[in-house]
Amino acid sequence: MELTRDLLDAVCDIAVEAGQLTLPIYYSDFDVETKDDDSPLTQADLAAHRHIQAALTRLTPDTPQLSEEGAETPYAERRGWAEHWLVDPLDGTREFVNKNDQFTINIALIRDHVPVLGVVYAPVLDTLWFGAGALGAFCQTGDDAPRRIAVSTRADTPRVLVSRSHRGSEVDAVLARMPDYEPVTMGSSLKFCVIAEGRADFYPRLGPTSEWDTGAGDAVLRAAGGAITDLHGHALAYNDGDSILNPHFIAFGDTEHDWRAYLSD
Rank of each mutant, 00 (worst) to 15 (best):
L8K: 10
D9Y: 13
G19P: 09
L21I: 05
L21M: 09
T22K: 04
L23C: 07
P24Q: 12
I25D: 03
Y26K: 13
Y27G: 11
D31P: 10
E33W: 09
S39E: 06
L41W: 03
D45G: 08
H51Y: 11
A54Q: 15
L56R: 07
T57C: 13
R58T: 11
L59W: 06
T60E: 09
T60A: 14
P61R: 10
D62G: 15
T63N: 02
Q65F: 02
L66V: 12
L66T: 06
E68A: 04
A71C: 03
E72V: 08
Y75H: 09
A76T: 14
E77G: 01
L86S: 10
L86A: 07
G92N: 08
R94H: 05
R94E: 11
V97K: 13
K99F: 07
K99M: 02
D101G: 00
Q102E: 01
A108P: 00
L109K: 01
R111V: 09
D112H: 15
P123R: 06
F130L: 03
G131I: 02
A134D: 12
Q140N: 04
T141I: 05
G142Q: 04
D143R: 04
V151Q: 01
R154P: 02
D156C: 00
T157K: 15
S163Q: 06
S165H: 08
G168T: 07
S169H: 13
V171E: 13
D172L: 12
A173L: 15
L175Y: 11
M178A: 09
P179V: 12
P179M: 08
D180C: 15
V184E: 14
V184H: 11
S188V: 03
S188P: 03
L190P: 05
K191P: 06
F192V: 02
C193F: 01
V194S: 04
I195P: 05
R199M: 04
F202N: 07
P208M: 10
T209M: 13
G215A: 09
A216M: 08
A216S: 07
G225W: 08
A227D: 07
A227K: 05
A227Q: 07
T229W: 10
T229I: 06
D230H: 10
G233T: 06
H234M: 05
L236Q: 09
Y238S: 06
N239V: 10
N246F: 07
F249H: 15
A251L: 04
G253P: 00
G253S: 06
D254W: 01
E256R: 01
A261T: 10
Y262M: 14
S264A: 15
D265P: 15
D265Q: 15
